[in-house]
Structure formats: C-alpha cells, structure tokens
Nucleic acid binder design. Sequence first.
DNA 1: TCTGAAAGCGCCTGCAT
DNA 2: ATGCAGGCGCTTTCAGA
Lengths: 160, 160
Amino acid sequence: MAAIELDRIDLLILAELQRSGRQANAELAERVHLSPSACLRRVQRLERDGVIAGYRAVVEPEAIGVGLQAFVRVQLADHGVEAIEAFSRFVNQWDEVIACHALTGDMDYLLHVAVQDLEHFSRFLLDRLLNQAGVDDVNSSFVLRTVKPFRGLPLPTLAG
Amino acid sequence: MAAIELDRIDLLILAELQRSGRQANAELAERVHLSPSACLRRVQRLERDGVIAGYRAVVEPEAIGVGLQAFVRVQLADHGVEAIEAFSRFVNQWDEVIACHALTGDMDYLLHVAVQDLEHFSRFLLDRLLNQAGVDDVNSSFVLRTVKPFRGLPLPTLAG
DNA sequence: TCTGAAAGCGCCTGCAT
DNA sequence: ATGCAGGCGCTTTCAGA
C-alpha cells in the first residue's frame, strides 16, 4: 500500500486538491502545468490507487450548531479483545465522536468530540461514554481556541 | 455567523457533501429529491454563507510517507500575549503540525503531529518544538491505531 | 508518457411558476 | 422558493507523437 511511486507533479496535484478539492480539472491542469487530459489521468490514477481516498466538504462547526469541542482521554476497564471491539463499535456509531485514536501512554484512547454545548457534552459523557462503553477513567479537556485547523497532510519535498 | 437558518434539505446536502464532496450536482440533486438547479442554488448559498468553508481531497497518510502520527500536549513557559502569538505563528508554519487546539486543563495546547517516522518526530520535537517555541513541558503520545477516522461533523436532526 | 481535437455531458444562467 | 430551457464550458475519449 505504501509502494506507490509519486513524482513531483503528483505531489503538486495532491497539494492542490487538499487545498481546494473541487476545482475544475482544467484549472488544476493549468496550476500544475499539464494539459487537462494528462492531469485528469493522473487524478484518476491517484483515486484508483487509493492515494486520494475521497473528497469532503469542510463545514463550519458553528453554522450547524456545534458550539463545543472536547478531547477526551479514555482508559478502558477491561483490555480483552471483546471489550476493545465493543468500545470501537460504540465510538463508531456515536456521532458526537468525530475521531478516535488508540494511543501510547497512560491512557488508551483519545476521543475528539463535537457537541452543541456543555449540557449536550454532559449527556454524552454520563449516558453514553461512562455508562455503556466499559470505560474505567476519563479526562476531558475543552477546546478554547483552534490555533491551527486541519488543512491537509504534509507532502514530502514540498514541505520544509 | 451562527444565525443561518438551515432546513432539512440543507442538512441532507451537507451530509452528502461531507461524505462525498465531489459528486456531480445532478447526482446530489437526485439524492436530496430536488431539481439540479434548485440544488445548485442551495449549495452556492451554503458556500456564500460560509457554512461550507471549502472542499478537500482526503489523502491516505501511508501513501505519502506519513508513517507516524502523534498527539503532543504542550505547556508554554510564558503566558504573555507575545509568547502566545509567537507559538501560534510557529505551529502554523510547521507542516508536521496538522492541527493545534488551545485546551482547558493542565496543559495549554494539544498538537496533532504527522511525520514519516520516529526519527523525523525526534527532530521535530528537539529542533523545533522544544528549541524554538518557548515551550516549558511536552507530553507525547503516539497513534497506535485509528479507531474512527474523521468523516465529518455531526448534523442536527440527522444525528441520533 | 504527453498534447490536441472533437464529442458529449453537466453546469449555470435566464424566465416562468 | 422550484422547475424548465438554452448557451456555454468542462470533462472525457481517441489519435498521433
């Protein structure tokens, strides 16, 4: 999966599509100094090879009523395979959890949570996370300010 | 900015575009049971009002050599306005930092870091974060597994 | 591989409802 | 607000280098 050759132009295309994923192929072609047909073939190849996994609209949280985000560090009560898989199923079906990673360190998981307000978060924490998921300990931190929003992954050679 | 009325169809459109941001307008229109022109108008309005902030290609980390991700909790040495702004400038210009939030709790910031490998991370930590950014203390956790990748924000009414 | 041309399709503006 | 119709631009395929 990691043995796909990407040349300089591929990386330029990826950088452009991470920045602006819906620009017309003609425009993209001009930016990377290629003809539209050659550019399209490269994009389609990147999609087929799974380098580009998809495209997503970036939605402004406040516009849809997401007024509070939190990062919740979680430790499970039971580290058996079944408990781990059950926890994975739960976080995948809860919409408030917008991302979840298993981490090294003294806590097992880091959850990125998006909710309307503190009351919504409280319900999520008490009714769902602490009640259903087999969780032993949680540690919540609320987002005060987004210093750097996600704008895409760093690309080799183009990066510093 | 938060006083924009979104009806049920707007939310359906947002859900669709978060899932698949580059689908043709005709396809989107059919999915939300609208004519293409009516659908396009709504999408353009959502873009103009800033509800849709943009579109982004989703790139597979491993395909571009990002083999290690980490979450780094950071405490600043100095909490003056200048030190805070300097830190913000640094994380915004470092490509390895793919997201950064100021948090409540005993640490000031949470950095989401994407690098090639542990050696790359080591250079980032020692040369950049600890050396230049006015940092007092750091706590790094590495991503073992992504249990739930980011797939978009939760939308009211459509969510549970 | 790329470029260039030709054909088909979808976008996007009118205007009417 | 939605739907319909037209011009226009883009996407996409196919030869040729």
